[in-house]
Nucleic acid binder design. Structure first.
Lengths: 105, 105
DNA sequence: ACCGTACTACGAAACTCGTCGTACTACGAT
DNA sequence: ATCGTAGTACGACGAGTTTCGTAGTACGGT
C-alpha cells in the first residue's frame, strides 16, 4: 500500500505556467530554499538546507516547487537531490529567475 | 464615520518587497489586470478594464496591487486612475516586470 | 535481520485568500 | 436637492494553504 515507487512527476517545459512559478516563489520559505540552492550551486540534498519548518512541511514545499516547474528532483539512494530548472525557466520566461534571485531584501 | 478622505497609501520604493510583488502577480485576475494596463499604456480608470469579478472584488485586487507597490493609484473625480510603477519596480528588481509581462501563456 | 537515516503520506487544525452582497461615501450633472 | 455613477468598507462564506504530528516506505550499513 502507498505506491511511492513511482518516479517523481515534473511538468515539462511547455507546461510551466508563470502563475504557478510566481505563486511558488512568493512564499518566504520556498524563496529562501531556492536562493540557498542558487547560492550553493549544484544539486543539493533536500535536507541539507536548514529551514525553520519540520520535515513534512519541507516535503510539502518541495513538492510545490517541483510541480510548479521551478526545481527538478531526482532520487539518489535515500536522498532527494534538487536542482533549479534554469534552462527551462530561462527559455519560458527570460530574465525572470535572475531578477528574482538577485533581488536582495 | 468611515474616514476615506485619506489619500491612498503606497509603499515607497525602498519598502517594496519581492514576495509581495510575486504574490500580487501570482493571481490570474491581478496578472490580467496589470497586463491590460501594460497593453493600453498610460493611466487607466480602474473600471475601464473588464474583469470577470464584481466591483468589490476588483477593489480588493487593486488594493493588493497598490499595497504591494505594483501600481500607483490617484483619484480623479470619482474615478481612480492606476499606473504601473515601472520606474520603482525596475529600480528594485531589474528585469522582473519585463519578464512577467512578456510571458505569454 | 536489525537499526538508523531520508523522506513521503495522511489527516487535522489554524490561517489566509478570493469572492460576493449589502451598505456606504464621494463626486458630478440636472 | 436629487439622482446616477465610481468606487470603498465590512462582514461572511468557501476553498485552498501552511503547518504539524504520527505513521509508514525505501535504502544503506553493521
Amino acid at each position: 500500500m502507498g505506491v511511492m515507487s513511482d518516479e517523481l512527476t515534473h511538468p515539462d517545459r511547455a507546461e510551466i505556467r508563470i502563475e504557478a512559478v510566481l505563486h511558488a516563489l512568493a512564499d518566504p520559505v520556498r524563496l529562501h530554499y531556492v536562493r540557498e540552492m542558487d547560492r550553493i550551486g549544484t544539486g543539493v540534498a533536500c535536507g541539507a538546507i536548514e529551514l525553520p519548518v519540520t520535515k513534512s512541511t519541507r516535503t510539502h514545499h518541495l513538492r510545490t516547487l517541483r510541480e510548479a516547474g521551478v526545481i527538478w528532483v531526482r532520487k539518489e539512494g535515500t536522498a532527494r537531490i534538487a536542482t533549479i530548472r534554469r534552462d527551462d525557466l530561462d527559455a519560458r520566461f527570460p530574465g525572470l529567475l535572475a531578477a528574482i534571485l538577485s533581488a536582495e531584501n
